[in-house]
Each structure stands twice: as C-alpha cells, then as structure tokens.
Computed example of a mutant assay.
Amino acid sequence: MLDAIKDVVRKSSIHVCIVNCGGCNGCDVECVALLSPRYDLEQYGIYVHNNPREADVLLLTGAVTEQWKDNLKRIYDKAPEPKIAVAVGNCPISGDVFAQEGGHVNAPASNFVPVAAEIPGCPPRPNEILEAILAVGPQAIADRGREQK
C-alpha cells in the first residue's frame, strides 16, 4: 500500500540529491537556498533527499577529489534508473581553482559519471540551478514512465 502511494507521488515530482564531491561548499549553499521561501523549490514539485536511492537527479557540487573518485561512481550506481546527473558550478565541470598541476582534483565529473547538464558559475545563482533541474527533471519522469510499462 505504501509503495503504491509512493509511486503515485513520484510520477509527478522530481527528487534531487545534492552530492558534494569535495570543494568549498559555495554551490551547496546556493542549492540549499532553493529551499528558502524566496525560491520555494517544492512549489515546482521538486524535493531534496539525502539518500541517492530516492533521487531522480543528482546535483554534483565541488571538484572531484581523490577520495571521491570511487565514491561518486558508487553513489551514482545507487540512484534508481533513470537517473540524471547535473554538474553545479565550475568545480565539477573543470576543477576551477582547485585544478592545479600535480593536485588531487580529478575534474571533470563527467569522467566518472554521465553528466546531462552543466551549470557554470562560482557559484551559480539559485535560479540557474532551478532552471537546470526543471530542464532535465521532466526527462527523468518521462523515462521512469517508459521503464514501468
């Protein structure tokens, strides 16, 4: 019974999980700002989870550090199909200021998991993050509907 209710709700909503791969947390602050009354993420049917097993969209923040190379792939694999990864900020896209010769940053994140969208900026504005989620999220819902048939 509970699973049936959960399936009904998930058919019309987007569930995201913020995954910090090592960085300054600037992008994390902007992602969390989406929960404030100013942006009210939930009015769009978007819900934030701490568990990747509940996520349709993984928001990747921070540069991929040495410790996160294997962890990122493992977390991506835990998310249910279909899943979409979005690189938030310059760090998962290019390593930005952390990408130095001989450093311990392994950018871009797309070397480890498929990335559907990239949001440049250091950090990007919350409305840009919201627009990206709304651009790729419906595709995850549509793909989920095809897989259930």
Score class of each variant (00 low, 15 high):
Pro126Lys: 05
Pro80Ser: 11
Val32Asp: 14
Leu134Pro: 00
Arg125Asn: 11
Gly102Ala: 09
Asp28Ser: 09
Cys27Arg: 02
Ala99Gln: 15
Val57Lys: 11
Ile75Leu: 08
Ser36Met: 02
Leu41Thr: 10
Ala79Glu: 04
Gly103Trp: 10
Ile129Met: 03
Gln139Trp: 15
Cys21Arg: 12
Cys21Ser: 13
Asp77Ser: 13
Asn51Pro: 01
Ser94His: 07
Pro124Arg: 15
Glu101Lys: 12
Ala4Thr: 10
Cys21Glu: 04
Ala85Val: 00
Arg144Asn: 11
Ala135His: 13
Gly45Phe: 06
Leu59Cys: 02
Glu30Ala: 12
Glu42Pro: 05
Asn127Pro: 09
Tyr39Val: 02
Pro92His: 01
Ala87Trp: 13
Ile133Arg: 03
Pro126Gln: 02
Ile46Ser: 13
Glu131Trp: 09
Ile93Arg: 04
Asp3Gly: 08
His15Thr: 13
Ile75Gln: 06
Phe112Met: 00
Ile141Thr: 10
Thr65His: 05
Asn51Ser: 03
Asp77Ile: 04
Asp7Tyr: 07
Asp77Arg: 15
Val136Pro: 15
Thr61Cys: 06
Asn106Cys: 15
Gln43Met: 06
Arg10Tyr: 10
Ala85Ser: 13
Gly95Val: 11
Leu58Asn: 00
Lys11Phe: 01
Val16Gly: 05
Ala140Trp: 10
Glu147Lys: 05
Pro138Thr: 07
Ala4Pro: 08
Leu130Gly: 05
Pro126Met: 11
Val19Ala: 10
Val136Glu: 08
Arg74Pro: 03
Pro138Asn: 05
Gly89His: 06
Gly22Met: 00
Gly145Cys: 04
Val105Met: 02
Gly62Tyr: 15
Glu81Gln: 10
Cys91Lys: 12
Leu59His: 03
Asn71Met: 08
Leu41Cys: 08
Ile133Cys: 09
Lys78Cys: 13
Lys11Gln: 08
Pro37Phe: 03
Val64Arg: 01
Ile84Cys: 01
Asp3Leu: 13
Ala135Lys: 12
Gly137Pro: 12
Pro123Phe: 14
Gly121Ile: 14
Gly102Pro: 15
Gln148Val: 04
Asn25Gln: 11
Cys17Lys: 00
Arg10Gln: 13
Tyr47Gln: 08
Ala107Glu: 12
Arg10Lys: 15
Leu2Lys: 08
Ile93Ser: 12
Asp143Glu: 14
Gly95His: 06
Arg38Glu: 07
Asn90His: 01
Lys69Phe: 14
Pro82Cys: 01
Val86Asp: 02
Glu54Arg: 14
Ala135Leu: 13
Lys6Met: 14
Leu60Ala: 00
Gly22Tyr: 05
Pro82Met: 00
Phe98Met: 08
Leu41Gly: 03
Leu134Ile: 05
Val97Arg: 06
Val32Glu: 02
Lys73Ser: 08
Pro120Thr: 06
Lys73Thr: 07
